[in-house]
Design a protein around this nucleic acid. Structure first.
Lengths: 93, 93
DNA sequence: ACTGTATTTAGAAAATTTTCTAAATAGCTT
DNA sequence: AAGCTATTTAGAAAATTTTCTAAATACAGT
Protein backbone atom coordinates (compact mmCIF):
# COMPACT_ATOMS: atom_id res chain seq x y z
CA UNK A 1 0.00 0.00 0.00
CA UNK A 2 2.80 2.47 0.65
CA UNK A 3 2.93 5.36 3.06
CA UNK A 4 4.85 7.38 0.53
CA UNK A 5 1.85 7.51 -1.77
CA UNK A 6 -0.56 8.04 1.07
CA UNK A 7 1.28 10.99 2.56
CA UNK A 8 1.88 12.44 -0.87
CA UNK A 9 -1.85 12.30 -1.43
CA UNK A 10 -2.53 13.98 1.89
CA UNK A 11 -0.05 16.75 1.20
CA UNK A 12 -2.36 18.67 -1.11
CA UNK A 13 -4.98 21.00 0.40
CA UNK A 14 -7.62 20.28 -2.25
CA UNK A 15 -7.25 16.58 -1.65
CA UNK A 16 -7.57 16.97 2.11
CA UNK A 17 -10.66 19.08 1.51
CA UNK A 18 -12.15 16.34 -0.64
CA UNK A 19 -11.56 13.82 2.13
CA UNK A 20 -13.33 16.06 4.61
CA UNK A 21 -16.25 16.45 2.21
CA UNK A 22 -16.55 12.71 1.94
CA UNK A 23 -16.95 12.23 5.67
CA UNK A 24 -20.71 12.25 5.43
CA UNK A 25 -21.05 9.87 2.59
CA UNK A 26 -20.22 9.26 -1.01
CA UNK A 27 -20.34 12.01 -3.60
CA UNK A 28 -20.18 12.05 -7.36
CA UNK A 29 -17.14 13.45 -9.15
CA UNK A 30 -19.26 16.32 -10.40
CA UNK A 31 -20.59 17.28 -6.98
CA UNK A 32 -17.07 17.22 -5.61
CA UNK A 33 -15.80 19.31 -8.51
CA UNK A 34 -18.49 21.94 -8.06
CA UNK A 35 -17.09 22.80 -4.63
CA UNK A 36 -13.80 23.91 -6.13
CA UNK A 37 -12.62 26.71 -8.28
CA UNK A 38 -10.84 24.44 -10.72
CA UNK A 39 -11.80 22.52 -13.78
CA UNK A 40 -13.41 19.12 -13.55
CA UNK A 41 -10.34 17.68 -15.21
CA UNK A 42 -8.15 18.95 -12.40
CA UNK A 43 -10.46 17.59 -9.74
CA UNK A 44 -10.50 14.30 -11.59
CA UNK A 45 -6.73 14.27 -11.37
CA UNK A 46 -6.88 14.81 -7.60
CA UNK A 47 -9.45 12.06 -7.27
CA UNK A 48 -7.17 9.72 -9.16
CA UNK A 49 -4.35 10.50 -6.73
CA UNK A 50 -6.62 9.79 -3.78
CA UNK A 51 -7.75 6.58 -5.42
CA UNK A 52 -4.22 5.39 -6.15
CA UNK A 53 -3.31 5.95 -2.53
CA UNK A 54 -6.38 3.97 -1.45
CA UNK A 55 -7.73 6.82 0.62
CA UNK A 56 -10.92 6.63 -1.38
CA UNK A 57 -12.59 4.15 -3.65
CA UNK A 58 -15.09 4.62 -6.40
CA UNK A 59 -18.30 3.00 -7.51
CA UNK A 60 -20.28 3.68 -10.65
CA UNK A 61 -23.99 4.12 -11.01
CA UNK A 62 -25.69 5.33 -14.15
CA UNK A 63 -23.21 7.66 -15.74
CA UNK A 64 -21.97 8.95 -12.39
CA UNK A 65 -18.83 7.99 -10.56
CA UNK A 66 -19.14 8.10 -6.80
CA UNK A 67 -16.25 8.49 -4.44
CA UNK A 68 -16.17 7.29 -0.89
CA UNK A 69 -13.69 7.28 1.98
CA UNK A 70 -11.75 4.11 2.56
CA UNK A 71 -11.60 4.23 6.33
CA UNK A 72 -9.33 1.21 6.64
CA UNK A 73 -6.41 3.17 5.22
CA UNK A 74 -6.92 5.83 7.85
CA UNK A 75 -6.43 3.14 10.47
CA UNK A 76 -3.13 2.19 8.87
CA UNK A 77 -1.93 5.76 8.91
CA UNK A 78 -2.77 5.98 12.58
CA UNK A 79 -0.52 2.98 13.07
CA UNK A 80 2.32 4.81 11.37
CA UNK A 81 1.89 7.68 13.77
CA UNK A 82 1.64 5.29 16.68
CA UNK A 83 5.34 4.59 16.14
CA UNK A 84 5.97 7.98 17.65
CA UNK A 85 4.03 7.42 20.82
CA UNK A 86 5.33 5.91 24.01
CA UNK A 87 8.83 4.50 23.37
CA UNK A 88 11.03 7.12 24.88
CA UNK A 89 14.16 8.96 24.76
CA UNK A 90 17.54 8.28 25.66
CA UNK A 91 18.20 11.36 27.81
CA UNK A 92 21.59 11.95 26.13
CA UNK A 93 21.78 15.67 26.57
CA UNK B 1 0.39 25.98 12.80
CA UNK B 2 -0.96 24.72 9.52
CA UNK B 3 -1.69 21.18 8.43
CA UNK B 4 -0.74 22.07 4.91
CA UNK B 5 2.88 22.54 5.91
CA UNK B 6 2.84 19.56 8.21
CA UNK B 7 1.52 17.14 5.63
CA UNK B 8 3.80 18.59 3.00
CA UNK B 9 6.69 17.90 5.31
CA UNK B 10 5.54 14.35 5.90
CA UNK B 11 5.15 13.68 2.20
CA UNK B 12 8.85 13.18 1.57
CA UNK B 13 10.40 9.76 2.34
CA UNK B 14 13.71 11.18 3.53
CA UNK B 15 11.90 13.43 5.97
CA UNK B 16 9.80 10.58 7.31
CA UNK B 17 12.98 8.57 7.71
CA UNK B 18 14.55 11.40 9.68
CA UNK B 19 11.54 11.48 12.00
CA UNK B 20 11.85 7.75 12.61
CA UNK B 21 15.56 8.17 13.36
CA UNK B 22 14.76 10.80 15.93
CA UNK B 23 12.44 8.55 17.90
CA UNK B 24 15.18 7.53 20.25
CA UNK B 25 16.53 10.93 20.99
CA UNK B 26 18.11 13.98 19.49
CA UNK B 27 20.76 13.75 16.81
CA UNK B 28 23.11 16.26 15.26
CA UNK B 29 22.63 17.44 11.68
CA UNK B 30 25.83 15.63 10.71
CA UNK B 31 24.78 12.32 12.23
CA UNK B 32 21.45 12.54 10.48
CA UNK B 33 23.14 13.42 7.19
CA UNK B 34 25.53 10.48 7.40
CA UNK B 35 22.60 8.06 7.20
CA UNK B 36 21.67 9.31 3.77
CA UNK B 37 23.14 9.17 0.36
CA UNK B 38 22.78 12.89 -0.27
CA UNK B 39 24.82 15.93 0.48
CA UNK B 40 24.74 17.61 3.85
CA UNK B 41 23.24 20.63 2.18
CA UNK B 42 20.29 18.61 0.96
CA UNK B 43 19.72 17.05 4.35
CA UNK B 44 19.94 20.52 5.85
CA UNK B 45 17.16 21.56 3.48
CA UNK B 46 14.98 18.67 4.65
CA UNK B 47 15.66 19.54 8.26
CA UNK B 48 14.60 23.09 7.60
CA UNK B 49 11.31 21.84 6.14
CA UNK B 50 10.71 19.67 9.20
CA UNK B 51 11.58 22.59 11.43
CA UNK B 52 9.24 24.99 9.65
CA UNK B 53 6.42 22.52 10.03
CA UNK B 54 7.22 22.20 13.75
CA UNK B 55 7.68 18.47 13.53
CA UNK B 56 11.15 18.91 14.99
CA UNK B 57 13.00 21.59 16.87
CA UNK B 58 16.65 22.30 17.18
CA UNK B 59 19.08 23.15 19.90
CA UNK B 60 22.70 24.14 19.59
CA UNK B 61 25.65 22.92 21.59
CA UNK B 62 29.25 23.65 20.72
CA UNK B 63 29.29 23.86 16.97
CA UNK B 64 26.66 21.17 16.60
CA UNK B 65 23.00 21.58 15.85
CA UNK B 66 20.80 18.93 17.39
CA UNK B 67 17.38 17.99 16.12
CA UNK B 68 14.64 16.49 18.19
CA UNK B 69 11.05 15.38 17.65
CA UNK B 70 8.34 17.78 18.67
CA UNK B 71 5.83 15.26 19.92
CA UNK B 72 3.10 17.81 20.52
CA UNK B 73 2.64 18.33 16.82
CA UNK B 74 2.13 14.62 16.38
CA UNK B 75 -0.77 14.88 18.79
CA UNK B 76 -2.30 17.60 16.67
CA UNK B 77 -2.03 15.51 13.54
CA UNK B 78 -3.77 12.69 15.33
CA UNK B 79 -6.58 15.13 16.01
CA UNK B 80 -6.86 15.90 12.33
CA UNK B 81 -7.22 12.20 11.61
CA UNK B 82 -9.70 11.83 14.41
CA UNK B 83 -12.12 13.85 12.29
CA UNK B 84 -12.49 10.73 10.19
CA UNK B 85 -13.38 8.39 13.01
CA UNK B 86 -16.82 7.73 14.38
CA UNK B 87 -19.21 10.25 12.80
CA UNK B 88 -20.89 8.12 10.22
CA UNK B 89 -22.47 8.01 6.95
CA UNK B 90 -25.63 8.98 5.58
CA UNK B 91 -26.49 5.76 3.78
CA UNK B 92 -27.47 7.71 0.63
CA UNK B 93 -26.76 4.94 -1.83
C1' DA C 1 43.77 35.64 15.07
C1' DC C 2 43.98 31.33 12.48
C1' DT C 3 42.55 26.68 11.41
C1' DG C 4 39.40 23.17 11.30
C1' DT C 5 34.89 21.14 11.87
C1' DA C 6 29.76 21.53 11.49
C1' DT C 7 26.13 23.38 9.30
C1' DT C 8 23.49 26.53 6.44
C1' DT C 9 22.61 29.63 2.45
C1' DA C 10 22.62 30.91 -2.53
C1' DG C 11 21.83 29.92 -7.02
C1' DA C 12 20.95 26.92 -10.58
C1' DA C 13 19.58 22.40 -12.83
C1' DA C 14 16.59 18.47 -12.79
C1' DA C 15 12.50 16.30 -11.43
C1' DT C 16 7.88 16.28 -10.07
C1' DT C 17 3.36 18.20 -9.44
C1' DT C 18 -0.49 20.96 -10.48
C1' DT C 19 -3.32 22.99 -13.61
C1' DC C 20 -5.42 24.05 -17.95
C1' DT C 21 -7.73 23.26 -22.70
C1' DA C 22 -9.25 20.15 -25.88
C1' DA C 23 -10.45 15.75 -27.10
C1' DA C 24 -11.96 11.07 -25.84
C1' DT C 25 -14.81 7.72 -23.44
C1' DA C 26 -18.92 5.95 -21.14
C1' DG C 27 -23.43 5.31 -20.47
C1' DC C 28 -28.11 7.07 -20.37
C1' DT C 29 -32.53 8.48 -22.88
C1' DT C 30 -35.15 9.25 -26.62
C1' DA D 1 -27.97 5.64 -33.42
C1' DA D 2 -27.85 10.47 -32.01
C1' DG D 3 -27.54 13.59 -28.65
C1' DC D 4 -26.71 14.61 -23.74
C1' DT D 5 -24.52 14.57 -19.48
C1' DA D 6 -20.67 13.01 -16.56
C1' DT D 7 -16.13 12.05 -16.22
C1' DT D 8 -11.48 10.93 -17.65
C1' DT D 9 -7.28 11.14 -20.60
C1' DA D 10 -3.65 13.54 -23.30
C1' DG D 11 -0.47 16.91 -23.84
C1' DA D 12 1.54 21.02 -22.63
C1' DA D 13 2.54 25.18 -19.60
C1' DA D 14 3.36 26.92 -15.05
C1' DA D 15 4.63 26.25 -10.44
C1' DT D 16 6.90 23.90 -6.89
C1' DT D 17 10.21 20.78 -4.96
C1' DT D 18 14.40 18.37 -4.65
C1' DT D 19 19.04 18.15 -5.32
C1' DC D 20 23.64 19.63 -6.26
C1' DT D 21 28.08 22.56 -5.98
C1' DA D 22 30.23 26.33 -4.14
C1' DA D 23 30.45 29.79 -0.93
C1' DA D 24 29.23 31.66 3.58
C1' DT D 25 28.58 31.50 8.56
C1' DA D 26 29.40 29.90 13.23
C1' DC D 27 31.97 28.68 16.66
C1' DA D 28 35.83 25.93 19.24
C1' DG D 29 40.46 25.11 20.16
C1' DT D 30 45.03 26.09 19.69
Amino acid sequence: MGFAETFKALSDPARREILLMLRNGKMSAGDIASHFDMTGATVSYHLSVLKKSDLVFESKKKNFVYYELNTSVFEEIMLWFAQFKGENNDETE
